[in-house]
Design a protein around this nucleic acid. Sequence first.
DNA 1: CTGTTAGCGCATTCAG
DNA 2: CTGAATGCGCTAACAG
Lengths: 356, 356
Amino acid sequence: MSDRVTISQVAEEAGVSAMTVSNVLNGRPGASEETRRRVLDAAERLGYQPNLSARNLKAGRTGLIGVMTLDLTGQYGLEIVRGIADELASDEREMLISATYQEAVRELERTQFLARGLVDGVLMVAPALEDATLEALRRKNLPCVVIDPRRTDASLPRVTVDNYGGTRQAAEHLLELGHTRIAYIKGIADLESSELRYKGFHDALRLAGVDLDERLVAESDFTYTQGFRITSALIAEHRPTALMAGGDLIALGAVDAARACGLRVPDDLSVVGFDDLPQAAQTFPALTTVRQPLHDMGKLGTRMLLSLIDGRPLLMENMQMPTDLIVRGTTAPPADALPAAGEEDECATPSHGDDQ
Amino acid sequence: MSDRVTISQVAEEAGVSAMTVSNVLNGRPGASEETRRRVLDAAERLGYQPNLSARNLKAGRTGLIGVMTLDLTGQYGLEIVRGIADELASDEREMLISATYQEAVRELERTQFLARGLVDGVLMVAPALEDATLEALRRKNLPCVVIDPRRTDASLPRVTVDNYGGTRQAAEHLLELGHTRIAYIKGIADLESSELRYKGFHDALRLAGVDLDERLVAESDFTYTQGFRITSALIAEHRPTALMAGGDLIALGAVDAARACGLRVPDDLSVVGFDDLPQAAQTFPALTTVRQPLHDMGKLGTRMLLSLIDGRPLLMENMQMPTDLIVRGTTAPPADALPAAGEEDECATPSHGDDQ
DNA sequence: CTGTTAGCGCATTCAG
DNA sequence: CTGAATGCGCTAACAG
């Protein structure tokens, strides 16, 4: 068990009362220079540091922020968490991370735990946000901000991103390059963001008068593995000249699938991702993708939460952040003459372990 | 501010004393069925949940574990953190993550903060562990376990990994394939693990009677970017047939560099990484690498810490975990006839943003 | 300038 | 079976 030095021990050591020690240590006026020195001395000697549980109990606040995240597996949530950490670092606050492992039940349970006075507020990253969880938050009147919610119908302050605009811009980029046979691999279907991204792509094509071939559209679970498999199948069956993915991992799988099929990227197949994860810049050729300002989303959400906690008004309940198309090395005009479809249709299968 | 329901409110609502409420809710005997029901009812109605600061103050423990990690950027530390989270999930404990951003000062500061009764113990992942920090831990008598320390001279219980054996086995694999011109890119020089890894490589070659060409050895900062740059240079100048890296990111950069130089992996250049990060399996060809059981290291460290906290004896102060060579797609025998060194020595530079 | 009193919310001790 | 007193460590309000 951790040893504790209490304020009264310091008081005794310094030959003053506990109150005086408290005053001195908290920089409050009203202590002679002489006393002050004696107290600081004693505190230093004993290695005293105020116990936080006691202080929290007294103050009714803890200086801790709870962060609920799907899991700690993916770079996606992680980049947001980094933003949160960076913003908090300048604010004398600590971050308590709870992983929900995609389970709504666990999300509720963890929220209730945090709401027991452990944290002053909660940031939820891409939460399931079931009604029971919302109710629990409301009951406790616990400040909460949602970053990238799966649904936007919950009436909580939130940070979202311009999913629609992102894919639309990306699709326009491909259209300008001259592509018309553009495949699209969606992310997980029941996320609102997945639908919005697809819609942006869809609208861009329609507005350009390009027919959308339904056979070039597929769904996935956001993983590299599925990106690889689905792309292999698409190439073998329908030979798109470009492919857009609802997430970077899918896109990275697509690039490798193309390569495994003997196609060159971007010459034979252009690929565009979504997210701009660190990995996107760290491949060759580097991935053209739609950048979500994940780090800034974390920072902004944190600032909003801190406002709520301090009782300051929120400028906006729903902050939508812009997306940016980052053109790197995986997009180019379609090759005028496609290589004759030869025997290389037998796509290799990547020998990889687990997903994500 | 978060609304609070206290035990006395529940007591009043149920028409009993606070003590009875406490007894009922903590499952202690000594309450009539009738009373019990009334209490549970009232608690439910009011949404009562015991305040944690109060309970912690009383109990002298918090149920929280502090995790000090370099940063939240890399998959490396993250995999360990995941292991910690998974182990903790089954143990009614919460995890408080503090990022130190590689700064020893901040590491000390964060440690002191946590030691103020906020956590029952600390897990340090790859910490700088300066003397001041050690001293702070010792003074507070705060249970602490170190995972993958940069130096092993600190007298704290720790979880390490067989760095030496890992690279040695990997080097032997390359030697068996017939390679003799093997390059090596070290990780950050002042980590003990970097030295051990290099030593394993070095010894394997010496034991096999293979001359080590010093010009094929370089240092890096563990990043993809440096892996790419250094490999490009090595290929242009010295044409190794195989390359070992002190970390997977370096290796991934090396693979892409080879590709950018027009070499095929593994035909023209075999590459072996170290770590087995998730990305290693998610490329094509998938990376042959030395697997560190990062997840298990997190789990084991956590179990050790929980033992310390509960006052149970530790089986061993220093647990060394094994490494495993995972042979995937980036290693093969050297091509008998190397392609004539042509003009493709102009290696392309990857267009990527930031490091790591 | 410094000390005393009291209470944050809970749970342990001991009476009733 | 239940309740009243007590203290965990700290600090706000007041008194000296």
